[in-house]
Design a protein around this nucleic acid. Structure first.
Lengths: 156, 156
DNA sequence: CTGTCGACTGAACAATATGTACGGCTGGAG
DNA sequence: CTCCAGCCGTACATATTGTTCAGTCGACAG
């Protein structure tokens, strides 16, 4: 669960050049191949590395509009709402947050007009009392983890 | 920019078993290796596949608390605020949204108490007028893209 | 001080995957 | 009808992987 400096360097290297192999990585880091292999296995079984899935850009798929919707849920309908939202492909992410039955979800749509359709589908469900939506204009900091990794592997 | 059914199957397969090789993938999909290779190259230069970076779990790194903060920015201070937030490792993501100078950011922290420190650091900056924070309790739908990929590759 | 333990190294091996190239086939566009 | 992009099957040299092993090192308990 705690990661050291070598772990950190491995993660940074993997983030920069994901298609790199274990052998090449060991050369860059100046350690033996077995070490890198063992560390990688450990990081994965630790859960620190959840996987290496492809990072797909919704915009390139034809969904250039992103929005965040805050949903107010009727008491006791949480489970149903979750099940409902899971079936909507445009719902990329869903969180339950503090506050009275609130959820926050990330949506994508083909256009601003299409966003209306998506929102209608999202809120067209009985347990949802109210929804307020904020459309994303810019994304100055795309989802990142490296700065955190560096902090976690250095401050030790 | 448009992806067909084979592209979709490749992405699904990659998401399920990311460490799979081009050869094994071609076997599973029943197509020639060269085809898979060419398609993968195309998807990457298209920008559909942004990369294969490791998906690191902040919780496993010692940051189990996630929160979303809505920031109200003073007119004209947007750029400064962005630069400021970029320097905070616990800020994993930042969006500017519709509304008067609003930003939405995703934060992580070591604990609820630590979240206070993070928020102080985030809002301890001149251009930020007000901040409201929602702590994430559950994450019923973790960031996903496969359903969207399937929709995009089928509806054609 | 000494023994044990976990982690790292360097090496080796067979098995497998990669990069790259070729000719041939086919369906759709012009 | 012809051209062409895209796919297939094949081939080859090279590189990487999975796996194992013995040896070294530092931390730590007795």
């Amino acid at each position: 669960m705690a990661i050291d400096h070598l772990d950190g360097r491995m993660l940074v290297l993997l983030a920069k050049e994901p298609r790199i192999g274990v052998l090449e990585m060991s050369r860059r880091l100046g350690v033996a191949r077995g070490t890198v292999q063992a560390r990688l296995d450990r990081l994965q079984s630790n859960g620190v590395i959840r996987g290496f899935g492809p990072q797909v850009d919704p915009a390139a798929l034809g969904y250039p509009v992103t929005a965040f919707a805050t949903l107010q849920i009727r008491q006791g309908q949480g489970a149903d709402v979750r099940a409902h939202l899971t079936t909507v492909p445009e719902v990329l992410e869903l969180h339950t947050t503090t506050g009275s039955g609130d959820m926050l979800c990330r949506l994508v749509a083909r256009s601003n007009a299409d966003l209306q359709r998506v929102i209608d589908r999202v809120v067209g469900f009985d347990g949802i009392v109210r929804a307020s939506t904020a459309i994303v204009m810019e994304n100055p900091v795309p989802l990142r983890i490296i700065p955190l990794v560096e902090q976690a592997s250095t401050e030790r």
